[in-house]
Simulated scan of single mutants.
Amino acid sequence: TYQFTPRRGGKEMDIVGYRNAELVHQLTREGGLNTKYGDGTTLNMAQAYILERLALVTADWPLDKTAQDKRLMPRTYQYGYLALAREFGMTLPDNLKSIKVIDGEPRDEKKETNAVNRISKNMNKLMDKGLVKCLREGNPQTRTKGVYLLTIGSPEENAEVEAYVRANLGL
């Protein structure tokens, strides 16, 4: 499998959610990620891209044996908004003046902040649409990342997945 490793102390993210991604593509085909545009609607590319990425890096439901052995949580994203922003290339510095070395790593704090804000706005819209559910808020002071559940299945399936995740994460 393809693996994505966040640059700063994060875990590797395996590309494991092929069935999840197909559910997102189905939502897209049905207009579930459309947004108002002029007198009509059109696909919201940012939301679609974020949701597809979340689908790919979260384990499918039901869990297969490999996911069970790795103790992966189905449809559960726990890496944080900055990891997504980095994955999308949103934090790459535009010039040398904007770079600061933080913890031995060159970073552009302004771009990181702007990228996280853009991801956050789109995640809130996905939550408003009922496609993502926040199970635990992140807290930068305690360096706790949020826990987000993809609610891309049927209502019954979403309830089953949420119960499983809450029980296994102690939420």
Rank of each mutant, 00 (worst) to 15 (best):
Y37N: 09
P74T: 11
K110A: 13
P74H: 07
Y79N: 15
A115F: 06
T66V: 09
V101K: 15
L43T: 08
L82S: 04
G38D: 01
G104H: 10
K70Q: 11
Y77I: 01
D69V: 07
D39K: 15
Y37W: 05
R75E: 01
V57A: 04
T58C: 14
E112R: 02
L56P: 08
T58L: 06
P106V: 08
N34D: 14
G38Q: 06
P106N: 10
S98C: 02
V116T: 12
L54P: 05
M90S: 13
I50C: 06
K36C: 03
G38F: 04
R86W: 09
G104Q: 08
E105F: 10
A48D: 01
T113A: 14
P93I: 04
A55P: 11
F88V: 10
A67T: 07
R75Q: 13
A59S: 15
Y81E: 08
Y77D: 02
V101E: 15
T76N: 06
M73T: 01
E52Q: 13
Y79K: 15
K36P: 06
V116W: 01
P62Y: 03
T76M: 08
T58D: 06
E109F: 03
D60P: 13
L43N: 08
D39T: 14
E112A: 09
L72P: 10
L43R: 13
Q47D: 03
Q47S: 02
E109Y: 02
D108P: 07
I99L: 12
A48V: 00
Q68D: 02
A115C: 10
F88E: 14
D60C: 14
